[in-house]
Design a protein around this nucleic acid. Sequence first.
DNA 1: CCAAAAGTGTTTGCTCTACACCCATGG
DNA 2: CCATGGGTGTAGAGCAAACACTTTTGG
Lengths: 228, 228
Amino acid sequence: MSAHTYEYPRPAVTVDIVVFTLRENRLQVLLIQRAEPPHAGAWALPGGFVHMEESLEEAAARELAEETGLRQAYLEQLYTYGAPLRDPRGRVITVAYFALIPAGASLQQSPTYEVTQARWFPVDALPPLAFDHAEIAAYALRRLRYKLEYSAAGFELLPEEFTLTEIQSTYEIILGEQLDKRNFRRRILEANIIEPTEQMRSGEGRPARLYRYRPDAVAEVKARRLFP
Amino acid sequence: MSAHTYEYPRPAVTVDIVVFTLRENRLQVLLIQRAEPPHAGAWALPGGFVHMEESLEEAAARELAEETGLRQAYLEQLYTYGAPLRDPRGRVITVAYFALIPAGASLQQSPTYEVTQARWFPVDALPPLAFDHAEIAAYALRRLRYKLEYSAAGFELLPEEFTLTEIQSTYEIILGEQLDKRNFRRRILEANIIEPTEQMRSGEGRPARLYRYRPDAVAEVKARRLFP
DNA sequence: CCAAAAGTGTTTGCTCTACACCCATGG
DNA sequence: CCATGGGTGTAGAGCAAACACTTTTGG
């Protein structure tokens, strides 16, 4: 890393974000439709170039805000993709992030000149994606599912207050399987990561108590060891 | 990501590698001593610039080969560090990898003009490091320990054939705690990821059977769920 | 009073953990 | 024959999974 190495040609660096949310009882991903070549008209992950004065995480947060209007969201670096030919225009390395948006958060999209349209797609029905974005989205989904199993990341997809049935349903949607109601309630209450509020929510049937996430909660569980 | 954005100034992109091995019954990390400013004379992780025609993984493998002479090693992307001021020379984004080298592999170092010296340091006794490399090394160690708990990555640090005591000792060194001999053996044999060879190794005391890793083994265990 | 969703404990099986002695070889 | 490390099984405790009925509200 001596000084003269700086004369080498440099790759361009972007961030791309896999934005997840719950909508209509499905896990969905935000995609934008590209306005310009390459892949004009194709769907792609939101993203853009990293500015010189901002960190990678700041770049991801800025792009997320530009696409959704949201300033607060769970954001986690996923993986960096750098195959030499992944972008036909030249060498572009992208640092992929994934974001979790609370269900029902009001998005205000301010599409820039780059974007003709933004839309949510269910994760199990994504259209063909530009570049290597299908691979990135698939990896993000794997990571999200895995993460749910040993952490409390699921709360990032819920509004501030929620019923036990709603959170169970969140887990069922993401994991794609049914869970036992009594076991689920016992374990989530014993884990001590949520606390009851004074409110109840009325709908059809008996009203349900509302809970909130305890932000001070230690939300990771130690993975079971392969070896003792 | 339209074409005109390519006129933006670009960051430099490097790879840095946290190379782990077992030496003298300790987990050790390879460091190089910098020959040129900034941080001339300080210890740092091996690494270098990503060339335009190679992938990130290829860049990491090339740098690893240049520093150690090893062409085959376990290599995994760790995290990408991109704080604007992490390198005083300007904007340098680094994609960090970690590598696992089998114990006793013969290294041939071919230090380049950039490196005055390369040395192994025990992970619990690293010298002060240049740039943000201390943070990177600490994260790599955390990831390695975590990885050992739910995968069979430990085998990458062992020679092709090994005794059960040797592999148990590997786990004890990395995890930093003693493990029960009978429980360890039962579980690793039931996991079906190693198979006995015909060879025995004689030393002091009763000879021990040699085992080898089954490369077709499914070496990950499902993490215990936080919720049922 | 009926439909709809909320809420609540116990039993059973399995997995993890703790623990101590005999075996094979070399010197 | 003795020192050294290799190799082996079992019992008890704690955790996870399966399972059905009662309660509260709105219409």
